[in-house]
Simulated scan of single mutants.
Amino acid sequence: MILEVAILNVIPGEENAFEKAFSLAQNIISKMAGYISHQLKGCIENSSRYILLVEWKTLADHTEGFRQSKEYQEWKRLLHHFYDPFPVVEHYKDIEL
């Protein structure tokens, strides 16, 4: 399992519109091959900052399967205009201890 982590800085004043758009966009990502789950959390200290956590079966499910799909174009249309700056996305793996 791979955890995608994205810090989303939304343009101040656009939080409600972003949340409404995300409620539509989550239906896109949840139908993608390799998708396991996702969570969107709002920051307590900064109301225009969110964190998006998405679990994928493999890294390729996100970077190739989702990002290279036609569905991703709709995701971009719904969400990308809300971000300033554009989010950095990182991927994490489980550590065996």
Rank of each mutant, 00 (worst) to 15 (best):
Y83G: 05
V88C: 11
R77K: 14
E45K: 13
M32W: 00
I7N: 03
L79P: 04
E15V: 07
V89F: 10
L79Y: 07
E74N: 14
E19P: 03
R77C: 10
K57V: 01
N16D: 09
E96R: 13
L53M: 11
K41L: 14
F18K: 01
L3K: 04
A33F: 02
N9Q: 08
H62D: 04
S47I: 14
A33H: 07
K31W: 06
N9L: 02
H81I: 08
L53N: 07
C43L: 09
G34C: 06
Q68M: 11
S23M: 04
E90S: 15
Y35I: 01
D84R: 15
P87Q: 06
L53Q: 09
I44H: 11
H62W: 03
K70P: 09
D94G: 15
L59D: 02
K70S: 15
E4F: 01
V88L: 13
G65T: 02
K20D: 06
Y92K: 15
P85N: 10
K76E: 12
R77G: 10
S30T: 08
N27F: 04
D84F: 12
K41F: 09
N46I: 12
A60N: 09
N9Y: 05
I11S: 11
F22M: 04
G34P: 00
G13P: 01
H80K: 12
I29S: 00
S30Q: 10
Y72P: 04
Y72C: 08
S69G: 13
I11M: 09
E19H: 03
Y50M: 04
M1W: 07
L24N: 06
S23E: 05
F22V: 02
L97N: 15
K57C: 00
K76F: 08
S69T: 13
F86C: 09
R77L: 11
Y92F: 15
P87H: 05
P85K: 09
Q73C: 10
A6D: 00
P12V: 09
N16A: 13
W75Y: 14
P87C: 06
K70T: 15
F66T: 01
L24T: 07
V5I: 05
H80C: 10
S47L: 10
L24K: 07
V88G: 13
Q68D: 12
V5T: 04
Y83N: 08
E19M: 07
N27Q: 09
Y72H: 11
I36D: 05
Y72A: 06
